[in-house]
């Protein structure tokens, strides 16, 4: 119980919220890392997955890349990149590591979504004289959207988690509050940082879940 009240008083101390090490700044860094890396990952993974899914090629790679991503420890990749020449360019090693772990779920889900589109619908579209591009944009993409969005949600949650770990390898973000707490041997600060990270992750998850609930219904209305 003492830890709880200590954590509460740590969180409610005004000085812990301001300044370069403050919660607001760390939250901003975390949000920035998550959003930028999500955009980069989507720009890399989605075009590849959509084209591969449309052509029906490279399925083994698109599906297995998730399994490979799971076997490689995030922490190891963060440290490995930090020790390469990339690590000397500020945040780049963190950004690359984050993107590496966000791409697999995006790729796998978008590919599977494209392949699970009813083949009869695709054949009907071709019979109506649609070109490959029209089929991709007007038929397959809208029907694959729910699974694509699932991939985006998983990637976003993964990014929040990886960005937290990046603090161990010298990166910014809310994880820094936790690692600083460990260095100071301050359990209240460690727990306070963990609570902030957990709340942030759950907020991101529920935000994307809500977005997913809205998106497919709009697709159905248009159809």
């Amino acid at each position: 119980m003492k830890t709880l009240s200590d954590t509460w008083s740590w969180l409610t101390t005004a000085t812990h919220w301001s300044g370069p090490d403050g919660i607001w700044n760390r939250l901003g860094e975390h949000l920035y890392l998550t959003v930028v890396c999500l955009l980069i990952s989507c720009l890399i993974a989605l075009p590849v997955a959509l084209v591969l899914g449309h052509l029906g090629k490279g399925g083994a790679l698109a599906v297995n890349i998730s399994n490979i991503g799971r076997a490689v420890p995030t922490f190891a990749v963060l440290v490995l990149l930090l020790l390469t020449p990339v690590g000397t360019y500020g945040q780049w090693s963190t950004i690359i590591a984050l993107v590496l772990f966000a791409v697999p779920p995006l790729l796998t889900n978008a590919y599977v979504g494209m392949r699970e589109v009813d083949r009869d619908v695709v054949r009907a579209a071709r019979g109506m004289g649609m070109s490959g591009r029209q089929m991709l944009w007007n038929v397959e993409l809208p029907l694959a959207l729910p699974l694509i969005l699932t991939g985006v949600r998983i990637a976003a949650v993964q990014l929040v988690a990886t960005a937290t770990l990046a603090a161990l390898a010298g990166g910014g973000g809310l994880g820094r509050i936790i690692t600083a707490g460990f260095n100071l041997a301050s359990t209240p600060q460690v727990v306070a940082g963990a609570v902030l990270v957990a709340v942030f992750a759950l907020l991101v998850e529920s935000l994307f879940e809500a977005g997913q609930r809205i998106a497919p219904s709009r697709g159905r209305e248009a159809a």
């Binding site: 830890t3 949650v157 929040v160 988690a161 937290t164 770990l165 603090a167 161990l168 994880g175 936790i178 707490g181 359990t187 460690v190 727990v191 940082g193 963990a194 609570v195 990270v197 957990a198 992750a201 759950l202 998850e205």
Partner: peptide, 14 residues
């Protein structure tokens, strides 16, 4: 499952 690993371990510290 949504809670990041570093936060999970930290929450268990006390």
């Amino acid at each position: 499952y949504t809670i990041p690993s570093l936060a999970m371990f930290s929450l268990l510290l006390p």
